[in-house]
Computed example of a mutant assay.
Amino acid sequence: MSYLETTHNVYKEAALTPDVGLCCTTNPVWELPGLKIPKIMQEMNYGCGSTVHARDLTNNPKMLYVGVGGGMELLQLAYFNRQKEGVIGVDVVDEMLEASRKNFIEAEKLNPWFKKEFVTLKKGNALNLPVPDNSIDVAAQNCLFNIFKSEDLKKAIAEMYRVLKPHGRLVMSDPTCEQPMNDALRNDDRLRALCLSGSLPIAEYVKMLTDAGFGTIEIRARKPYRVLAPKHYATDKLIYIESIEVAAIKDPMPEDGPCIFTGKTAIYFGDNPFVDDKKGHILLQNQPLAICEKTAAALASLNRDDIFISESTYHYDGGGCC
């Protein structure tokens, strides 16, 4: 049995019998005016963060969500769109698609604004999406891509890139791990399906996205997730796993490489406004400016004693230098 077949079976079981906290952390449910999440959707929330960000969802974007779970994030996305077929949900597991259809009937009862035709559910594989090229404004996946092994992960990211419109964005949440994992963990297909042993270091995860062509990367959150302890897992040392929330934007690739925001900030404390003639960056006195990794390196190379550059916070909410 392949690792993808194991994953399919795990989520078939989770669709037929909801398993609260099956593979991931339980996250706070968005409290939005007039939005009520059915309890069954919360119980089937198999994600490790949130991919629903209001600033991504203005002007009625066409949205795609891959790996539907119980439909909770599809409902949240539809809240911002409210148009027939405004949101597409894709999943390879028939039972998960059927469970979501039933859950949307419950959502209609609780939410007068919601109609189940706002969401189109399609049977499909993340490695071969049933969606046309350049047709999606916002694509999302939550705790899915970490399941894929390297070559399949490249295919899944390339598919998301293909379906996005220019300047469209891929919003994701996945577990990451900075420590090496042994082969016993990496080759345990069930642990991979449970969103544990497929966790990558953040730098490797980001490189996968930029190699696919995404010109701007935003790391929006980095949070504690799980611990693999020797007494429970095939490891002789404790392994700490985090989850991150990331947006990869289909901007053109700059000549000097991608703009990667990891939560660094520049603060200028000189006497007059600082203007970087080469890049056009303007630093006002004691006004923090979010900067990408390239800008941080360029400013640091100036060796000025009136510019402070913070370490990466791995939290970025826009308004940056690029």
Rank of each mutant, 00 (worst) to 15 (best):
L185M: 07
L153V: 08
L127K: 12
K116M: 13
S310P: 02
I307M: 07
T265A: 12
Q83F: 01
P38A: 07
N9D: 12
P230Q: 10
N111Q: 01
L144Q: 06
K294F: 07
I267V: 15
E178Y: 09
A297L: 11
G280F: 05
K84G: 06
K250Y: 00
S312H: 12
K84I: 12
N60Q: 07
A290N: 11
F80Q: 00
L97H: 13
A212S: 11
K231A: 14
L77I: 00
L185E: 06
Y65Q: 01
N81M: 05
A158Y: 08
A14K: 02
P273D: 11
V52P: 01
N286L: 14
A156G: 13
I37G: 00
K102A: 14
A99G: 03
Q285S: 13
D188C: 03
C24Q: 04
A158W: 08
M160R: 10
S150Q: 12
E117I: 13
N45D: 15
Y205D: 11
N134M: 14
K279E: 13
D236C: 03
P288Q: 11
R220H: 01
N146R: 00
G168F: 01
L228R: 15
Y233N: 11
K155R: 15
F80K: 03
S2A: 06
E13S: 11
W30S: 14
L185C: 04
L170D: 03
A221W: 05
F104E: 00
M63E: 04
I244D: 00
A139P: 02
E43K: 08
D276P: 05
T176D: 05
A107L: 02
P38W: 03
A54D: 09
N103I: 04
Y3N: 02
K155E: 14
N59W: 06
M41H: 04
K62F: 08
R101E: 15
A54M: 07
I37Y: 00
N125Q: 13
N27A: 09
E5I: 07
A126T: 10
M1Y: 05
G124F: 09
C23M: 09
D56L: 03
Y46A: 06
D305Q: 13
G49K: 01
Y314D: 15
P112S: 06
V138M: 02
G215H: 02
E159C: 07
D271C: 05
V92R: 14
E151D: 14
Y233D: 08
H315D: 13
W113A: 00
C143R: 04
S2T: 09
M253P: 03
K237T: 14
V92M: 15
I239A: 09
G71A: 02
V138N: 01
T295L: 06
P224W: 08
V20T: 09
L121T: 07
K231R: 15
A221C: 09
K154S: 10
T262E: 12
E311T: 13
Y161H: 15
H8M: 06
E245G: 03
G71F: 04
P112V: 01
M172T: 11
V206I: 12
G319R: 10
A221G: 12
P224Y: 11
R101C: 13
N142C: 08
E85N: 15
I244H: 02
G21E: 05
V92D: 11
E106F: 06
Y11A: 05
G71Y: 03
S150K: 14
Q179W: 10
